[in-house]
Design a binder for these strands. Structure first.
Lengths: 231, 231
DNA sequence: TCCAGGATGTCTACGTCGTATGCCTACAGC
DNA sequence: GCTGTAGGCATACGACGTAGACATCCTGGA
């Protein structure tokens, strides 16, 4: 109603034109926001603003916010490449582990999504992208002689280790946002001296965390355990 | 506006009287809500309503919602008892692991908090309750002959394993909310047959997940690895 | 006895969030 | 041309976290 005589539709068609949307574009932009600002600053409204569109348009590409976040997790996880045909299954598992660590470090803010979103969805209803690494790992292991159930156990052990390790390592990262040498010591100093003698003494060790070495040692233990005491 | 002539202020002064507040009462009630309804239904307003008070009163007991949630995590984690004087350190680590699993299963909705909240806080600034198990474990291990840095590595390996395992096991629980036998098979049936042959074949295995056994096997591997290849 | 000052709880208000509903526009196939 | 459909937009609702200004009560010193 009330079509005004002049002052027509300038400035209307330019700023909102973030160009055509697509699920990929939406997910990529969401990932970018999460990487840059953290997960809780990623709101539908902010995402829409970043895309130059109305918030409501996002709902053409995901039924709700949770699903959209699942999509982001799926995108990130689908970078994981499992070669089911590798004859050296141990080496392949190590490769998967290193890739997973790399992905986690590249997108630290997504890790909570990676490890906890599955808690909200029954396995069989998860996005296919997140099930593919599972199937591929099962294939790898059955080809290496494991029974299917044993392969599942190994998969669980491996990803248990991975999730745990990555959570550990990211904690260290947060502890060391910059040259936190002094900061950390300062923080530790706050601890009651009588109650935390050991922790207070570990300042320098805490500062020199080596994620690669830590993961490799975990893998050594796991793979050794798998051969000496098969599942 | 429009004060009705009769029907005055009944029902106003009785329900809000939740009695005196206290940090313990607030945290306990928050935990109850989380256990019952899940973490995202736990809002400051709902918590206040459950306590029969104004939302703002909660801010006398925690500077903000994140801190309150940290408090809940701390409460839950402080149930963990580490006996630093146990001469059998392996047995003690196993006990810690079993306790942790028990706690996680008792409060599944809190687990995301337990494993991811630390990501947001530098170690030295974490609530003391969450650092106490760490210090106690370090004490246990140094008494058993480990150097302090080695003890830290063992601690990390153990809790990495625990976090990973617990996340794994809870996924299985979600998969089996009831006698999901049919439900799971149905879900798996949805998977493209060509692409997920192994996963589809594992329905029965997925249904008979044994968390205790799975954790014990993980511990076997870890402890074996620790003695054959010390850190 | 009274009064000052802290601890505790409440009310109101602001800006942000997720998303239901309904409308508009542009184009596809007939 | 007409109609159906997909994509996008405007408006609106209820819930959220929390800042700031009060109110109430308890305590201990004068």
């Amino acid at each position: 109603m009330t079509t005004p005589p002049a002052a027509p539709a300038v400035e209307k068609r330019d700023s909102p034109a973030g160009g055509k949307l697509s699920r990929e574009r939406v997910l990529a932009c969401a990932l970018e926001i999460i990487d840059r600002e953290g997960i809780e600053r990623m709101s539908m409204r902010r995402l829409a603003r970043a895309l130059g569109h109305d918030p409501m348009s996002l709902y053409r590409y995901a039924p709700n916010k949770a699903a959209l976040l699942d999509g982001v997790a799926e995108t990130v996880l689908s970078e994981l490449m499992v070669d089911s045909d590798d004859p050296d299954w141990k080496a392949q598992l190590r490769s998967v582990a290193r890739q997973f660590r790399g992905i986690a470090l590249a997108h630290p803010h997504v890790v909570p999504l990676l490890v906890t979103r599955p808690l909200a969805t029954p396995l069989a209803l998860r996005p296919l992208g997140t099930l593919r690494p599972l199937e591929a790992t099962l294939a790898l292991l059955t080809r290496a002689g494991f029974s299917a159930p044993d392969a599942l156990h190994v998969y669980r052990a491996l990803f248990g280790l991975l999730h745990g390790h990555v959570l550990n390592e990211l904690q260290e990262l947060v502890d060391n946002p910059d040259e936190t040498d002094d900061l950390l010591r300062l923080g530790l100093h706050r601890l009651p001296l009588g109650e935390f003698p050991l922790l207070r003494g570990l300042a320098s060790t805490l500062l020199s965390y080596d994620g690669v070495a830590e993961l490799e040692r975990g893998l050594d233990i796991l793979l050794a355990g798998l051969t000496t005491a098969p599942p």
